[in-house]
Write a protein that binds this DNA or RNA. Structure first.
Lengths: 211, 211, 211, 211
DNA sequence: TATGAATGAGCATTCATTCAT
DNA sequence: CATGAATGAATGCTCATTCAT
């Protein structure tokens, strides 16, 4: 697992730090969702987190730390939920299908968070960005492994580069459900979208077509 | 063509307005690319446009107008270049392939612009947003028409909803080349990417598979 | 008559200067009435005067010149209308009554102008102020002369200082009708107001009471 | 007593708010006296109040709030000092004389404040204006009550409308001492002015004349 | 003379951050 | 640890004034 970027806190009590940062992330997400990170003030974040501006700064050093914490937390959640359904032992097309379905479902349920993260990463400093991007890579890697497993087990026939592309593909199609919702969600239900995407992805890539 | 949102200018001379706004957009894109819209100041924009802050405000009313102008201009450029290669009379798979290839090439050449637009649209006011989204819809529609033409001409076999999805697909894969460049462009050249995407898209969707 | 303060003009043609300044004053008064001098921009003044900002500055040197011109013009108008009814030969109580009545009428008709002048003089530079105040003194003097005439002719019995005070009194009561209109004009018609004021002023000051 | 218009403060401590606003009003009056409200900058106000621009804005929301606070405070002071000498039980001509004398004295001592208030009220927004005008009405009402008391007690013989006019009269003559000082205070001492005004006002209005 | 584009000093206001209590 | 008052650099925007055409 990626080593986290340290965010300075004046307070020593680790348990408290975690508790406060949890409140902070929850409060911040709501606000960022509504107004974007830049238009959200630290005072607002403090307030919606349930403590004072002074206290906020006991647990972070700069406003940007909040954004990092938020992004970090969202990735961890998405990833956490995604990993639950994957059977690392025995990769199969079904396994991949389930992973996709599950991933799309998570994205659907965490639409706002995904959106927030997507649109605000660029506001992270050069310092924090790599940590977050690494997390993204890790998520793509999850799909890559499944696909590679399928290839290895003979369920798909893809070159290595194609494996990577397909993983990206899936990852992006998931995000697409969130950040193109104004357009896609008028056309399809989540089920339809999942079915169609799965079908096309597998038609395009899987070995099934050759049967 | 979509009616443009009027951006107020104090200056009367239409030709001058266009010239100055061109300078402005060029200057602004460079800056926004580097620092994001929010971190870019109006004074910086004025300076990099080659005129004073006072002059800048002779051609816009608020800072946000700059962003709108930037987004608007980028869409127009992408669209303009895209439309050049399309043969509206006689839609064919080849035509679609060319459109995709061309679209990917445009995105590649305008990476920065595409990225800027993509990440900053959300900063547009509720007022300006629809105009820009409409432009996006129009671009997706371009692909939709080609695909629908192919279906009509018997080159593909898709239901209407699938046509739309495929159009979205293409559009997003193009953008993906820009906003996931840090990851994709390490793996593939533009040609590779284009070839693979085209292959998969057509394998997934086209009637060829049934032959 | 008070020597006017010179206001610099780049244009030479005196007739044109007068014409343009007339337009200017008319345009400016309307605007100042509505928004106050400070909130009125030179561009607005130019526009409502019927010429460009460039032309405006051909006839004045600074924005404040406009205010001076406006104040000057208003005083001249009030004074001009006031002097029409005064019979300088043969001062009498009746003459005074008529002057008061007429003055109040003028104030009533030029309420906005009086108000403008009254509230904006303080914005005049130390340079221009004396010229305007002098005009005010001149107006008070008009009443002073009438009253002094009445005293001389035996119609009133007042010491010199009382003469001045009464003149001020009348002058202020007139202005009061304009700048306390929100309160006074709800209570009285102009006629009532004039009658009452005249009655009280003369009861308080005139020799009639001793008869 | 008139309900005050709320002026937003970010600071919670009510005592502090009052203290800071006191500083603010004192600092602001000095400046406005000298340069007028519009030419006075918020930074100047902050500085002459003894705190930073940031702190200033912790206690107000807009520059105009300062003006409102100033006007409000001046009225309260004038009114407060005026009410001290009034014997509400037993209205008499003497009581009225004292009230006038006292009012004129207050105006004399607070000349600058009265002037400021007088010339700047019109700069108040449509929002704040009514609150200030109400205060003025209340002050006129104070005189009205005394006069009405005198009439009731048989010391004066006036119709209702005349009572109001007289009250206005007194109020305006007081203000006149402040805003026509450049002219009046060259001619009279405060005592002279008070004596003469009182004499004339009572000659003009009181029942004494009928004895 | 008339025009109006260009200029930039100046202003109100915000907000991240600190620090004394 | 928690609080919230204080700070002032930074920013968007305005507008009087100039000057080339």
């Amino acid at each position: 697992m990626t080593r986290k970027r340290e965010v300075h806190a004046s307070v020593k009590d680790q348990r408290l730090i975690e508790k406060r940062r949890d409140q902070m992330v929850k409060g911040a997400v709501t606000l960022i969702k509504k107004k974007g990170f830049h238009r959200t003030t630290t005072r607002e974040i403090a307030k919606s987190s349930g403590f004072s501006i002074g206290t906020l700064y006991e647990y972070i050093k700069t406003k940007e730390d909040v954004l990092y914490l938020v992004c970090d937390s969202i990735y961890d959640q998405v990833r956490g939920r995604l990993e639950k359904v994957i059977c690392k032992e025995n990769y199969s097309i079904d396994n991949l299908k389930q992973a996709i379905e599950n991933y799309f479902k998570v994205v659907d349920e965490m639409q706002d968070e995904v959106l927030v993260m997507y649109q605000e990463v660029k506001s992270l400093s050069k310092d924090a960005l790599p940590y977050v991007l690494k997390k993204e890579v890790e998520m793509v890697t999850i799909f890559e492994e499944i696909i590679a497993g399928c290839v290895k087990n003979g369920y798909m026939d893809l070159e290595e580069k194609e494996v990577e592309l397909l993983a990206h593909h899936i990852f992006v199609q998931g995000q697409m459900w969130a950040f193109r919702r104004w357009s896609l969600q008028k056309l399809y239900s989540l089920e339809e979208y999942t079915t169609m995407q799965t079908k096309f992805l597998l038609q395009g890539f899987s070995i099934e077509r050759q049967i």
